[in-house]
Design a protein around this nucleic acid. Sequence first.
DNA 1: TGAAGACTTGACCAAACGGTCAAGATGATA
DNA 2: TATCATCTTGACCGTTTGGTCAAGTCTTCA
Lengths: 225, 225
Amino acid sequence: MAHRPVSLKNTTKSMSRIQEKNRTRILEAALVEFSRFGYSGTTIEKISSVTGMSKSNLLYYFSSKAAIYEAVLANILDIWLAPLKGLNPEKDPAKELAAYIHHKMKMSAEMPDASRLFANEILQGAPRIRKVLEEDLKALIAEKSNVIQQWINQEKIEPIDPVQLIFTIWAMTQHYADFDTQIRLVTGLGLENPGFRISAEETVVRLVLRGIGLQSPDIVLETKP
Amino acid sequence: MAHRPVSLKNTTKSMSRIQEKNRTRILEAALVEFSRFGYSGTTIEKISSVTGMSKSNLLYYFSSKAAIYEAVLANILDIWLAPLKGLNPEKDPAKELAAYIHHKMKMSAEMPDASRLFANEILQGAPRIRKVLEEDLKALIAEKSNVIQQWINQEKIEPIDPVQLIFTIWAMTQHYADFDTQIRLVTGLGLENPGFRISAEETVVRLVLRGIGLQSPDIVLETKP
DNA sequence: TGAAGACTTGACCAAACGGTCAAGATGATA
DNA sequence: TATCATCTTGACCGTTTGGTCAAGTCTTCA
């Protein structure tokens, strides 16, 4: 299979109501399938049966299986990289990092499929998003490493390798989505459980902030109005 | 495909020299393929071509693709769970945890394929190792959580949820193997680089030990005689 | 050395899968 | 309601893939 690169552009031409509805239904179903079974383990037959439409109809909306996969991937990529962009050098490091971790944990809790799809793609050598990682992500990390380095220079936090710090935060937060099965088999709980989620987030925030010589603020879980 | 459970037993009946040699060659090649492309993305044709033997011959040694996969998985499972077993409640927490992290990082550096295969299996819902995780792993974690809890009770370390602590250590150490592609695309480096490896291990040890109120000991990389 | 068992292979098969196509059903619009 | 574009489908096709089988080659050992 050819590995056409994925860009972040969302070519949203004018679509009919039906087209828009069906495309999103397909992409939603595809995300679930791809994230669980990987690219090869997913059949377009299965995706179409989940959406309730025929295989032929699905291929009316997307020209190929690869096209669906790439559309799903492009859809989640910018969402996935967004949280890090928010890191603000002007504000308090403890609050900024805690907020970042909170954001990532929220994504692991609410979009575990997206996290798993991303993990799957990376595990396989990132054949489709290589370019994006190499350019956009690399630049983003360089920029945010700089933010952390500024905090170090201003002696707001203790010296640490900023890149390693970012990687460890990713590792811990995404682990709760990607290894959800293992965690659930061992503890019987997952992030959908408020107590477990608080405990998990507290642990991550604590390790990170203590690691750079700061104190953990109290954690506040989202409260819906 | 049927998901027959995998046990840890290694049914090593008496095998001829040829049989032993070929079986291990197959398992080695299969690990590389499965870890990179997943179960569905791997073909027995490809495995056999890597080993240099015919597909038919491969099926002489293993009755099916699933049998190969299960054999590979069973082979790495006990190796994978071994490090945690070493955690000794009698010894110094800082040294024990640092040694544990060192062991896990070493495995990520030297057996990234095994780590990725394991990650792949969990991502897909652990259909084959569900039983092992549910029983052996659960018991192991319960036991080692107890060790950590003892340290807390003896006020050798600060209070923390022991299970969360274990998960975060796994998350960080395995991340360097599973997300090696991403790390390499962004930094140009991987764990095979001594400087990067030291920096990574230092960061993980630091976050963990500081997180429970301890100081990091100096890290010593393995030196070969 | 020769026979029995272990090993190896190419030809072959059936099922699964991605994708095409022509024809029919449905919706929008005047 | 008539017309045209959009949408939907089942039948079909070629390829890939896991697995079988009969026949041949190589090892081992009495």
